[in-house]
Write a protein that binds this DNA or RNA. Sequence first.
DNA 1: TGAGTGACTGTAA
DNA 2: CTTACAGCCACTC
Length: 106
Amino acid sequence: MPTAKNFYESVYAVVRQIPYGCVTSYGAIAKAIGAPKSARMVGYALQHSPGDVPAHRVLNRNGVLTGKHHFPGENLMQQLLENEGLTVITNQVQNFEKHFWEPKIQ
DNA sequence: TGAGTGACTGTAA
DNA sequence: CTTACAGCCACTC
């Protein structure tokens, strides 16, 4: 079995821990799982993520919805974030630092 | 086996 | 301040 699957599962596990109304960055997740250089892989993993993973809460370090186009709808990601009390303008989350949640390793 | 790709990040100009 | 370039790891063809 590919050991990389553990990497994916680790990403999913961290993303599932993101509380309601909070967001984080790919690099933060990558660092949380012990691979700060693999931020790109986090995004790649989210692309293969199951439906029970709140991938809409994961943005880049800039607070921009880089993966918005990968969601079913054209503005679904933004709608989900706004539904959680966040403000999104031009694919960018306002007060990103304020809603930022740092992943924790259990 | 090797080369190409990507939901990123940090540093330089 | 904004824009550009290179590094990085895992996966697919």
